[in-house]
Design a protein around this nucleic acid. Structure first.
Length: 176
DNA sequence: AATGAATTCAACCGCCGCACA
DNA sequence: CTGTGCGGCGGTTGAATTCAT
């Protein structure tokens, strides 16, 4: 319950964004702002961490919110092969992109991507090399989103619910 | 038009590494 | 060496939005 209340408060309002942008502008060195100073202007409503994150992931002028084009997708694929889940490294290879954008892009695509469930002794999953357009379900095929929800439901009776929820991820499906 | 399911993506959380006292 | 604070990062969550029926 407490967590839900916290979440509800979480969304940044236009007023907060405006205050943050103004505060950054007023900083002597806007490249390296004093976050503690800025935090004071939010009167305890936002932590330095929240403020930094909002700025670096959404409001910084170097960020261009957009859909990745074909070239960028290729770069992401190539960099993923080299760097796996190092979103910051991958994002650094793209113009005006953030690790969050890359991470969301990848996770969204992953959720749509069908995987083959190998019915072998180790019960491991096999990831196809490329996403499949217009996928429809069939024998032995299931989307990762479905697998994830199955995994969640099967682990929901664990002894430590707090830890359990933190350990559920897609990465375990990819033998990370 | 209503509503439930699926998807998107912003925000939160905890961990880690580094700098500094 | 140890403790502390800060910033960066990746994993996860869930509200908001879109889609399907």
């Amino acid at each position: 319950m407490v967590l839900i209340e916290k979440r509800k408060k979480g969304r940044w309002t236009a007023e907060e964004d405006k205050l943050l942008m103004q505060s950054i502008e007023e900083e002597p060195d806007s490249e390296n702002p004093n976050w503690a100073n800025i935090e004071r202007k939010f009167a305890g409503k936002r932590s330095t961490k929240q403020i930094r994150e909002r700025w670096s992931s959404h409001l910084a002028p170097s960020i261009e919110k957009r859909q990745f084009n074909e070239d960028e997708r290729k770069i992401i694929d190539e960099e993923f092969k080299k760097n796996k889940f190092k979103w910051a490294k991958i994002a650094s290879k793209l113009e005006n992109a953030t690790p969050l954008m890359v991470k969301n892009f990848w996770n969204n695509r992953l959720k749509k991507r069908p995987i083959i469930v190998r019915h072998s002794a180790d019960s491991s999953f096999v990831e196809p090399s490329t996403p499949v357009q217009g996928f429809s379900s069939g024998p032995g095929l299931v989307t990762l989103a479905r697998v994830a929800s199955m995994a969640c439901s099967t682990t929901s009776s664990g002894a430590n619910p707090k830890k359990r929820s933190k350990r559920m991820s897609f990465s375990f499906l990819l033998n990370k």
